[in-house]
Structures are given as C-alpha cells and as structure tokens.
C-alpha cells in the first residue's frame, strides 16, 4: 500500500496540476470576455461555463465520453488523424479535471478582473492601448492575486474530481486511478482502513490548497488598485 499510496498521491497531484495548467489561458480569456458588457450572448456563454458546477459530474463525464470516445466527433477525428485515443487514459483524467475546475477559475478571475478600477482601464484606453493591451498591461497585473486564488481553487477542485473522471477515464489502478477513485475502490472492496488513510491524505491536500487560496484572496483585498482603496472613485 505504501508505494501504491505514494504513486496515487503523486499522480493525483500531477493530474490536478496539469488540469489547472491547460485551463489557465482559456479560463483567463473566458473571464476577460465575460467582463465585457458589450459582448453578445454573454449570458449564454456564462451559463455554459458555469454548467459543470451544477450538472451531476457524471453527466459531464458522459458528455465528455461521447465527445472524446472513439465513436465521438472529437475522439474519432483524433484516432483517425493521429492514432490517438483519449478516453480511459491519463489524458482523459486531465481533461475531466480541467473542465470541472474551469467554472471556479473563470468566476474567481472574472471577479478579480472586474474589481480593477474601471477608471484605470479608461485611462489606458485613452492613452492609446487597445482593450486587449489594457487587459494584459493593466487589468491582469492588478488582478493577479485573484487569478492566482482562482487557480488554487481550480487545483483543489481537480484534486478531488470523481464523477466525471470515472465515466470518461475509468478507474484503472496504476493508470487513471486518482486518490478519489482509489478511495471509492477501497470502500467498494471493504478495505476501510486503507480508504481512511486515503481520505486523510485527500483532506490534507485540500486543506493546504484552500488555505493558500484564502490567504491569497485576503491579501488581494488589501492590495492597491482594487475598489474601496481610495485610489480613485470612478465617475458614474
């Protein structure tokens, strides 16, 4: 169990990290798009992004499986073009973790981006910066704590992902078995003492990650350039 456990914990951490990494750029882009009030179909986009938060994770897993399975549009194309199979691989764990964590990153990052004083964005625009350059040079640097907090939150979510993962990646020991999946398997097979160790491990990891996220968002509230710091009162 000892070596097993180490392997499972390492894989879980690596999978969560990879999940968080691949959603970073799309997540930030989505967050930025959602801060634009002029965007058409903003409500629809926002609903789509939030969906994984409220759907049963197994349903998300099923949708992913239909997409990524060999018979699915994406999976079929990948198989035929590159000979790649995604479903029931470690890649599927990473994809499922990322999709499930995406809403948390997008929502947190969006809040942080919106907290940046609009007067600063207005000045940046009038000084010749496009809205994209303003996002990169003003909004992101001022919102980085919130974005980081969102990443940690997303990481924590990916760490504990179960429902979507088991559907699209299966529960294959030594391949796609994460902490949560291993725990489920131990409980199913009556190895309660091992399950308890795994649960303790999971709790510890989640605790550290959440503490980090709390600490980041608390620091963020005090950092300059956010609302209520008296830097500027933006005119109506």
């Amino acid at each position: 169990m000892g070596q097993d456990l180490a392997g499972i914990v390492l894989f879980t951490l690596a999978a969560a990290a990879a999940s968080t990494a691949w959603i970073l750029v799309p997540g930030l882009l989505l967050a930025w798009l959602l801060t634009s009030h002029r965007l058409r179909g903003r409500a629809v986009l926002e609903t789509l992004v939030t969906l994984p938060l409220v759907l049963p994770p197994t349903a998300v897993g099923l949708i992913l499986l239909l997409l990524l399975g060999r018979g699915g549009p994406l999976g079929g194309w990948l198989h035929e073009t590159f000979g790649l199979d995604v479903a029931f691989t470690r890649g599927a764990v990473v994809i499922a973790g990322g999709i499930m964590a995406l809403p948390l990153l997008v929502r947190t990052a969006r809040g942080a981006l919106e907290d940046v004083d609009p007067a600063l964005l207005a000045v940046s625009r009038s000084l010749g910066r496009s809205s994209w350059a303003t996002f990169v040079e003003v909004q992101l640097p001022l919102a980085w704590r919130g974005v980081l907090g969102g990443l940690v939150l997303a990481f924590s979510r990916a760490l504990g992902e179960f429902g979507a993962t088991i559907v699209v990646a299966g529960n294959i020991p030594g391949r796609t078995q994460t902490l949560a999946l291993a725990l489920f398997q131990r409980v199913q097979t009556g190895r309660d003492d091992e399950a308890l160790v795994l649960a303790g491990m999971a709790a510890m990891l989640a605790f550290v990650a959440l503490l980090l996220s709390q600490w980041l968002s608390a620091r963020g509230d005090r950092s300059v350039g956010r609302r209520g710091t008296g830097v500027v009162g933006y005119p109506r």
């Binding site: 000045v123 009038s126 003003v138 830097v231 500027v232």
Partner: peptide, 12 residues
Amino acid sequence: GYVPQEGALFPH
C-alpha cells in the same frame, strides 16, 4: 488626454 477624478494612476 483623459484625466479622471483624482488622477487614476496605475498603482502597479
């Protein structure tokens, strides 16, 4: 040259 109330300097 837009100068908002109280300046709105980039804090970073």
